[in-house]
Write a protein that binds this DNA or RNA. Structure first.
Length: 426
RNA sequence: GGAGAGUUGGCAGAGUGGUAAUGCACCGGACUCGAAAUCCGGCGAACCGGUAAAACGGCGCGCAGGUUCAAUUCCUGUACUCUCCUCCA
């Protein structure tokens, strides 16, 4: 959520900044008009409330002295009615202001490429070079099925399309990967947590999946109370400190968690229908940071480096993309995507997204800190995948495949695989 | 699932229709070479409006409604915490 005061002060700047994110100038103008009305009502109602407070004090005094206050009481009855009417108007205007405000995306940082979609993304750097195969590399789903470590058919039978079973060394590879990732992040100072996988609407609002993106998630109703299966651990990790005021000395806070992620993938029909790239349920190791505002961009670089480090240690070629303003997520001011090389598709595919959400989520979720002078400020929040585990399995299967269909286990993972160095061909 | 108790400033903790005591902590001053102790004074969450900045005002006793001229106090609903019972991986 943006600061309404900032929108009041710099409306033209806001319009310009949000134009490439699909926000029209008319929306901002409407918001400001409603905000002006709202503040006029506030002044009017507070004036009456002041009057009521003063007269009520008089009434109290008269009553204490056993006098007659019926004239004042009658007057205040009328004032009370006026207040009631004004407050009702105010509630209505508040609702209208909030409706628009919570649907405005974050302001892109100054160095973010401006553009409406992914065509305007910029490659920042590339690491390593894709391997040259002396044979035609197979897709990971073919490898996985042949090796008996992935079973998409039974996933579909039992749950539906976009579900999978991992088996045997496939399941162990997934487990090895996330243990490896969590260990690496722990070394960098992230505290490992196991959060709830179901969250309430307030949490979904705090990280701004709600109210705009209700279609993308699975929500279950339990005795009338909705709970949503987390689409990412960002939700429970970032809401961990919601409605709290931290001490400045506590910052920065680094958290990491492995969780399953659940996404309805509404609107992605026909895309990545095979394999591990786009499933309704997948594991992801997430990193979340709470930092002071002045540190947030430096922390974003570190966060991105921490995600990259996993790919480097697995020796998987990747590139770093700076997302264009129109391609970044709703709450992000600046996002780097990491894309890993997928040989069978002859392209790079997203495996991590690292974002600085500045104070956007902190304002929604009311996450603040108190500085040495006792002043209260919003924290900045960041999140990044480190990494999407299923996609990492896909990348390993494809990049580490041998001509006979066997898979060499990356050296860094061998200790996590109990010494297994190869997934043998069948 | 059942029963009871609780939720008030950084902490502790009173109040119970007339508009939030008190203690500790914190800040300033006195005393002192300095400190402690003592004394005097002050500050009280967070938020909103207002202002050039102030002043000032509103709100504020878990949350949401209601009754009332007036609600921390009464009524209704609800969340969470604790204790006991019940059940359970």
């Amino acid at each position: 959520m943006l600061d309404i005061k900032l929108i009041r002060q710099k409306p033209e700047w806001i319009k310009d900044k949000l134009a490439s994110r699909g926000v029209t100038a008319a929306e901002i103008d409407e918001l400001l008009a409603l905000d002006t009305q709202r503040r006029e009502k506030i002044v009017a109602t507070e004036e009456l409330k002041k009057q009521r407070n003063q007269v009520s004090a008089e009434i109290a005094k008269v009553k204490r002295e056993h006098g007659d206050a019926s004239a004042q009481i009658a007057a205040m009855r009328a004032v009370g009615d006026q207040i009631k009417t004004l407050d009702a108007d105010l509630t209505d205007l508040d609702g209208q202001v909030t409706y628009i405000l919570v649907r405005l995306p974050n302001i892109p940082a100054d160095d973010v490429p401006v553009g409406p979609n992914e065509d305007y993304n910029q490659e920042v750097r590339k690491w390593s070079t894709p391997r040259q195969f002396e044979f035609t590399p197979q897709a990971h789903w073919d490898l996985g099925e042949k090796l008996g470590i992935l079973d998409f058919e039974r996933g579909a039978k039992v749950a539906g399309t976009r579900f999978v079973y991992y088996k045997g060394l496939g399941a162990k590879l997934e487990r090895a990967l996330y243990n490896f990732m969590l260990d690496e992040h722990s070394k960098e100072g992230y505290q490992e947590v196991i959060p709830p996988y179901l969250v309430n609407n307030e949490a979904m609002f705090g990280t701004s999946q709600f109210p705009k993106f209700t279609e993308d998630v699975y929500t279950i109703i339990n005795e009338g109370e909705p709970l949503t299966l987390i689409p990412t651990a960002e939700v429970p990790l970032t809401n961990y400190y919601s409605h709290e005021i931290l001490d400045e000395a506590q910052l920065p806070v680094y958290l990491t968690a492995l969780t399953p992620c659940f996404r309805s993938e509404a609107g992605s029909a026909g895309r990545d229908t095979r394999g591990l790239i786009r499933l309704h349920q997948f594991n992801k190791v997430e990193m979340v940071k709470y930092v002071k505002p002045e540190d947030s961009y430096q922390e974003l670089d570190k966060l991105t480096a921490d995600a990259e480090d996993i790919l480097r240690k697995l020796n998987l070629p990747y590139r770093v993309i700076a997302l264009a303003s129109g391609d970044a997520s709703f709450s992000s001011a600046k996002t780097y995507d990491l894309e890993v090389w997928i040989p069978a598709q002859n392209t790079y595919r997203e495996i991590s997204s690292c974002s600085n959400c500045t104070d956007f989520q902190a304002r929604r979720a009311q996450i603040r800190y108190r500085d040495a002078e006792g002043q209260v400020h919003l924290v900045n929040t960041l999140n990044g995948s480190g990494l999407a585990v299923g996609r990492t399995v896909a990348a390993i299967l494809e990049n580490y495949q041998n001509e006979d269909g066997s898979i060499t286990i990356p050296a860094a993972l061998v200790p996590y695989m109990n010494g297994v160095t190869t997934i043998p061909a069948k």
